[in-house]
């Protein structure tokens, strides 16, 4: 019960803290404008490059925008608390680390859902790409799975945030790697072999492939293999992330570097 309280209340309070420096209206604008324009940018580059249809970029980038906030949110758990000088209080508390950190990711995952749905709809409308309503439910499942797997990578990012000061740079670097490797804009088959091999071990790759298959009318059972692999990748990252957090937390206490990393 205590863990559930930490999970939900901690997440809610952390989410509400965002509005101490930003009004909800501006937050909303940032949330919806950026992804739509990202879709448009890559769709236009795709047209210029004569590569794939607009649908390819609408689905790929919407999926990416659903999952990427999870990366940033987990890092911000550490960096934000450090900035507010509350990291020490958080880590000294007896609360379990899993509900503590994942609770803060939950509102962001919901944000990701909303952002993906909105950008899929609006980006599609602007570019003249329409999806039958029957694909939205299975797409939501795919988005959920990719958000979970990206949260796993986010945990690693958060752990490294205990050691690295420039967490924003690290997050942007990871997002960039996902953008290049995961097939959001460049088909994985067009990447060099070594990159394609790496991409299959990254979150998002299988989810984007599943989302495109679902958007083409495949049922969720047809893509369950892809979703299983996506979840598996996410679990591996999550376990590694929690281990890294535990390790660097101990190191930070030992070297008294918690607030100055």
């Amino acid at each position: 019960m205590k863990s559930l309280r930490v999970f939900f209340l901690g997440g809610l309070i952390s989410y509400r803290a965002l509005f101490s420096w930003m009004t909800p209206s501006i937050f909303f604008l940032i949330l919806v404008v950026q992804p739509v324009f990202q879709i448009l940018l890559f769709a236009f580059i795709g047209r210029a490059a004569n590569l794939r249809s607009d649908e390819f970029y609408v689905v790929g980038n919407a999926m990416q925008y659903a999952a990427v906030p999870c990366l940033f949110a987990m890092t911000q758990t550490i960096a934000g608390e450090r900035y507010q000088q509350t990291l020490g209080y958080i880590l000294i508390s007896p609360a379990g680390r899993l509900p503590l950190f994942l609770g803060r990711a939950l509102p962001v995952i919901l944000n990701g859902f909303f952002t993906a749905a909105f950008s899929l709809l609006v980006g599609g409308l602007i570019l003249g790409v329409t999806f039958p309503t029957s694909v939205f439910a299975p797409l939501a499942v795919v988005v959920l799975v990719s958000s979970l797997s990206c949260t796993g990578l986010g945990l690693i990012n958060a752990g490294l945030g205990l050691r690295i000061r420039e967490t924003s740079v690290l997050s942007n670097l990871l997002v960039g790697i996902l953008l290049i490797f995961c097939g959001a804009n460049v088909p994985v088959a067009s990447l060099p072999d070594w990159m394609a091999r790496i991409s299959s071990w990254l979150p998002l790759t299988h989810a984007i492939e599943a989302a495109r298959a679902v958007a083409h009318g495949n049922s969720i059972t047809n893509v369950q293999g892809l979703l299983g692999r996506e979840l598996g990748v996410g679990v591996i990252y999550a376990v590694a992330g929690l281990a890294i957090i535990r390790f660097f937390e101990t190191q930070s206490r030992r070297h008294a570097s918690l607030g100055i990393a």
Binding site: G46, V169, N185, P187, S190
Partner: peptide, 23 residues
Amino acid sequence: LTSTLQPVIFATIAFYMFKSGGR
């Protein structure tokens, strides 16, 4: 890092997109 890293990421994506499109 942002002024060098981000453009390099976008350049890489653009290079692969143009290469894959045969341009």
